[in-house]
Amino acid sequence: MSPVLLFWLAGSGLIGLSVYGLIVNPHPLCKLLALNLLGSGVFLLFGVIARRGASAGLGGDPVPQALVITGIVVAFSATAIAVALLLRLHSEAGEASIDEEEDGQP
């Protein structure tokens, strides 16, 4: 089995796992973790596409590799904002929950 196919399968599996996590974990931190897992799975697929395009003496196509680097930084930025929101919410409301029924009348 070629590494290209193998890591594509791994990426698909990771996306599946994160979808499961997104559905069954109600806590926003768990959702954030699952979203990061989802991102890493998608990025891994970028890596597979890059590896598939190995040519001209390079071990992989540098364009998708560069896109992943930018993508990782953007995903990290989202995580930083989400963590800050989550912690502020925790200190305001006593716990961090995004459940709807809490949207009471102020």
């Binding site: 954030l32 979203l35 929101l85 409301a93 995004i98």
Partner: peptide
Amino acid sequence: ADTLRAALRYLLFAVF
């Protein structure tokens, strides 16, 4: 708290 909750939900949706 309500505003923060709404913003967090917005962000998680958007990232997804």
